[in-house]
């Protein structure tokens, strides 16, 4: 059984999430959706700790950063000496939609045993205007095109949430939040 923790953050602030896998072969995953549309600092620490053997863990982050927002995400995977055979991965993906947005990403790994599989990835880029132009060339309005692309960015992670109830609730909240995103103002 895999425990799932889903977070959708829209307000500036600071906090920490820790998922600690204490039982052998325990599985856990953090889904972190961040819509930094307001001015201010969004500072989050996400930690995944493997304390027992053959545990499996994932942290998946999708973040949208608008003008004057600043995000600082520190993601940490720690595999203790007792956690042989563990498998862990951290994935941070962010998109800018404002020229003055700031994006600080610190994915960390601390591996103290063997054999393990562990890794992380982080990417950051601007909104893909070429993709938007393509959609407009297909008769889709700029606003619709923007919504499609933003939903695509978040939904490829959303669809992997196993719990139907969590998935459905998160989808609705994301959809409502993305409607507030206005690319032209940025």
């Amino acid at each position: 059984m895999e425990q799932e923790k889903v977070y959708l953050i829209q307000d500036p602030g600071e906090d920490k999430i820790v998922l600690s896998l204490q039982q052998e072969e325990e599985r856990g995953k953090i889904y972190f959706f961040l819509l930094a549309l307001q001015q201010g600092l969004y500072h989050w620490q996400l930690a995944l700790e493997h304390c027992a053997a053959r545990t499996w863990g994932r942290i998946e982050v999708r973040a949208l950063v608008a003008a004057k927002a600043k995000i600082k995400i520190q993601g940490r995977i720690k595999i203790f000496p007792t956690a042989r055979g563990s498998d862990s991965f951290l994935n941070l993906k962010t998109i800018f939609i404002g020229p003055t947005a700031q994006n600080w990403l610190e994915p960390q790994l601390e591996i103290e045993t063997y054999p393990v599989r562990a890794g992380h990835a982080a990417t950051s880029s601007g909104f893909d205007l070429r993709a938007l132009t393509y959609l407009r060339a297909r008769g889709i309005s700029p606003q619709q095109g923007q919504q499609l692309l933003l939903q695509g960015f978040f939904y490829d992670l959303l669809k992997t949430i196993k719990s139907p109830q969590l998935r459905s609730q998160t989808r609705q909240r994301l959809k409502d939040a993305l409607l507030k995103v206005k690319l032209d103002e940025n």
Binding site: F96, L105, V116, A118, H120
Partner: peptide, 17 residues
């Protein structure tokens, strides 16, 4: 990683095996 320019591309990957 401090990315303060929206018109930029940044990629990072790490593995331990």
């Amino acid at each position: 990683n401090r990315i303060n320019e929206s018109d930029s591309i940044f990629e990072h990957e790490a593995t331990v095996s």
